[in-house]
Simulated scan of single mutants.
Amino acid sequence: MFDIFIDTHFAGAHHLRDYPGDCEKPHGHNWKVKVTARATELDRCGMAIDFKVLKKIVKEVIDKLDHNDLNTLPYFQDKNPSSEHIARFIFDEVSALLTNKNHSLRTVTVLETDTQGLTYYGNQDHGGELR
Rank of each mutant, 00 (worst) to 15 (best):
3 D>V: 11
3 D>Y: 13
4 I>T: 14
4 I>Q: 15
5 F>T: 05
7 D>Y: 07
8 T>E: 01
8 T>V: 06
8 T>P: 00
8 T>R: 08
9 H>M: 12
11 A>W: 03
12 G>M: 02
13 A>N: 07
13 A>R: 14
14 H>T: 03
15 H>G: 00
16 L>H: 02
16 L>R: 01
16 L>K: 00
17 R>M: 06
17 R>L: 04
18 D>A: 09
18 D>T: 04
20 P>T: 05
21 G>M: 01
21 G>T: 06
23 C>R: 07
24 E>W: 06
25 K>P: 00
26 P>V: 14
26 P>I: 10
27 H>F: 09
27 H>T: 03
27 H>P: 02
28 G>H: 10
29 H>R: 06
30 N>R: 05
30 N>Q: 09
31 W>T: 05
33 V>R: 06
37 A>H: 07
38 R>G: 09
38 R>A: 15
39 A>H: 04
39 A>Y: 04
40 T>Y: 13
41 E>G: 00
41 E>Q: 13
42 L>D: 05
42 L>Y: 05
43 D>Y: 04
44 R>D: 10
45 C>Q: 10
45 C>A: 15
45 C>R: 08
47 M>T: 13
47 M>E: 09
48 A>Y: 08
48 A>D: 08
50 D>E: 12
51 F>S: 12
53 V>R: 11
53 V>L: 11
53 V>I: 11
53 V>N: 10
53 V>P: 01
57 I>H: 15
57 I>T: 15
58 V>S: 07
58 V>Q: 09
58 V>P: 02
59 K>E: 10
61 V>K: 01
61 V>G: 00
61 V>F: 11
63 D>A: 12
63 D>W: 07
65 L>P: 01
67 H>Y: 04
68 N>Y: 05
68 N>S: 13
68 N>C: 10
69 D>Y: 12
70 L>T: 01
72 T>G: 02
72 T>S: 14
73 L>Q: 07
74 P>S: 04
74 P>R: 02
74 P>A: 05
76 F>Q: 00
78 D>W: 04
78 D>K: 13
78 D>T: 04
80 N>G: 00
82 S>K: 14
83 S>Q: 11
83 S>V: 09
83 S>C: 12
83 S>H: 03
84 E>A: 06
85 H>D: 07
87 A>E: 05
88 R>K: 13
89 F>E: 12
89 F>S: 05
89 F>N: 07
89 F>Y: 15
92 D>Y: 08
93 E>K: 09
94 V>C: 02
95 S>D: 03
97 L>G: 00
99 T>G: 01
99 T>E: 10
99 T>K: 11
99 T>N: 03
100 N>T: 04
100 N>P: 02
100 N>W: 06
102 N>C: 12
102 N>L: 07
102 N>Y: 13
103 H>P: 01
106 R>C: 08
108 V>M: 07
111 L>T: 13
111 L>K: 15
111 L>F: 11
112 E>L: 03
112 E>T: 12
113 T>L: 04
113 T>Q: 00
113 T>P: 02
114 D>T: 13
114 D>A: 10
114 D>C: 10
116 Q>K: 14
117 G>Y: 07
118 L>Y: 06
119 T>W: 12
119 T>S: 13
120 Y>F: 15
121 Y>L: 09
121 Y>M: 08
122 G>V: 02
123 N>C: 09
123 N>I: 01
125 D>R: 10
125 D>K: 12
126 H>M: 14
127 G>K: 09
